[in-house]
Amino acid sequence: MRALQAAAPWGAGSLKVVEAPDPSPSHGEVLVRMKAVSLNYRDLLMINGMYGRASATTEDLITPFSDGCGVVEAIGPGVTRVAVGDRVATLFFQNWNAGRPTLAKLSSALGFPIPGAGRELAVFSQEGVSKVPDYLTDQQVATLPCAALTAWRGLFEDARLEPGDTVVLQGTGGVSIFGLQFAKAAGYRTIITSSSDEKLARAKTLGADHLINYKTTPDWGRAVREIAPDGADFIMEVGGGGTIQQSLRAVRIGGHIAIIGVVAGAGDINPAVLIGNSARLQGLSVGSREMFEAMCRALELHGIGPVVDKVFPWTEAGAAFAAMAGGEHFGKIVLEF
């Protein structure tokens, strides 16, 4: 089989297609023939040697991608959750089935340190895959494990929202677009931000109620307050240090800010602001298999179609990463096998 591999000196240019022996499943494992994988910002950091509880060393070899769709080709002894021929998604955390997160559960992420889904054939624990709705394409399934589940958990597992509440989605990447789709299905009022009027117009077609161009309106926290004078009930914070101060300005007293990314860099948070408005900041790292399966039931109930913006052959992963780094995408970028 063939697999993608990144190594020092890192960067998209270090990605290579290598030959590797065909794997076979052991007890409790499944062999999956991959059909598609999707890119997350995490993957961009990973191939640059910058991601993980410890940064990659010059000795590490990384097979990237946590998010994939494939078909079970063989099963090992003791496998009961899936059968040969089942279409499955890989799960971001291979050992987080349910319950609260722990260090052990959060240390089981695909891509690094566990080899990821960027290979033609891959062996996973039966606990680390899940069957998926039939109506979704392989490309759409590949977008679910990280971006969709992150949005789902932020809105429905961690926050306490009610229909009619106001949510702010930052940007038009995968998590925020899934957040928009989920929020509309739940009856929330949605505000989405972007530096592109074209992308905002596309978000409008997905049901966004209010649009803010943060390039022309850098004080977008004030703009949120003009729409919702008491402030937003929920904010999907993807920018980190570059946007958190605006989020703190925009959130209502007692509101919820889900911190899921740092695409605009790190920064400082003034604790006095949090005390003053009793806001809740919560770091969010994807979710469990139980959450994933609940999300899939909701997707099927509402017929939600994940937004796949760009598709590349899996052997052209470098070009896909260049598109991501350039902010060209709306929704998700997918590699197809």
Results as ranks from 00 to 15, higher is better:
residue 317 A to G: 01
residue 149 L to Q: 03
residue 139 Q to M: 11
residue 208 A to T: 01
residue 70 G to L: 01
residue 172 T to D: 08
residue 309 D to I: 04
residue 187 G to I: 07
residue 117 A to C: 14
residue 321 F to D: 00
residue 219 D to L: 13
residue 38 S to F: 11
residue 284 L to V: 05
residue 266 A to D: 10
residue 82 V to Q: 04
residue 71 V to K: 12
residue 150 T to S: 06
residue 178 F to Y: 13
residue 117 A to M: 11
residue 334 V to Q: 03
residue 249 R to A: 14
residue 321 F to I: 01
residue 333 I to T: 00
residue 29 E to S: 08
residue 90 T to I: 00
residue 152 W to Q: 05
residue 304 I to D: 07
residue 17 V to K: 14
residue 24 S to A: 15
residue 281 L to Q: 08
residue 313 P to Q: 09
residue 140 Q to W: 11
residue 3 A to Y: 09
residue 70 G to V: 06
residue 29 E to M: 09
residue 255 G to Y: 00
residue 275 I to R: 08
residue 218 P to T: 10
residue 1 M to R: 01
residue 137 T to E: 09
residue 165 D to H: 12
residue 10 W to P: 03
residue 103 L to I: 13
residue 243 T to R: 11
residue 151 A to V: 09
residue 134 D to E: 14
residue 73 E to F: 02
residue 100 R to L: 15
residue 4 L to E: 04
residue 331 G to L: 04
residue 242 G to A: 10
residue 20 A to G: 05
residue 146 C to F: 00
residue 120 E to C: 10
residue 68 G to S: 06
residue 145 P to E: 12
residue 236 M to L: 15
residue 14 S to Y: 10
residue 301 L to V: 13
residue 297 R to I: 13
residue 249 R to Q: 15
residue 223 A to P: 04
residue 241 G to I: 05
residue 108 S to P: 12
residue 85 G to M: 08
residue 109 A to W: 02
residue 246 Q to D: 09
residue 279 A to K: 06
residue 148 A to E: 06
residue 50 M to H: 13
residue 26 S to I: 03
residue 171 G to S: 10
residue 174 G to Y: 01
residue 233 D to F: 05
residue 223 A to H: 07
residue 102 T to W: 12
residue 178 F to P: 03
residue 245 Q to N: 14
residue 279 A to V: 10
residue 262 V to P: 00
residue 321 F to W: 05
residue 261 G to T: 00
residue 254 G to F: 11
residue 207 G to P: 05
residue 101 P to N: 06
residue 173 G to D: 08
residue 150 T to E: 00
residue 215 K to H: 13
residue 13 G to I: 01
residue 247 S to G: 07
residue 291 M to A: 15
residue 282 Q to R: 12
residue 167 V to N: 02
residue 224 V to F: 12
residue 242 G to F: 10
residue 109 A to V: 12
residue 136 L to P: 04
residue 320 A to K: 02
residue 38 S to H: 05
residue 201 A to W: 02
residue 3 A to K: 13
residue 189 R to V: 15
residue 325 A to N: 06
residue 161 L to P: 01
residue 78 G to K: 07
residue 172 T to M: 09
residue 11 G to H: 08
residue 234 F to P: 00
residue 200 L to S: 01
residue 173 G to H: 07
residue 71 V to A: 11
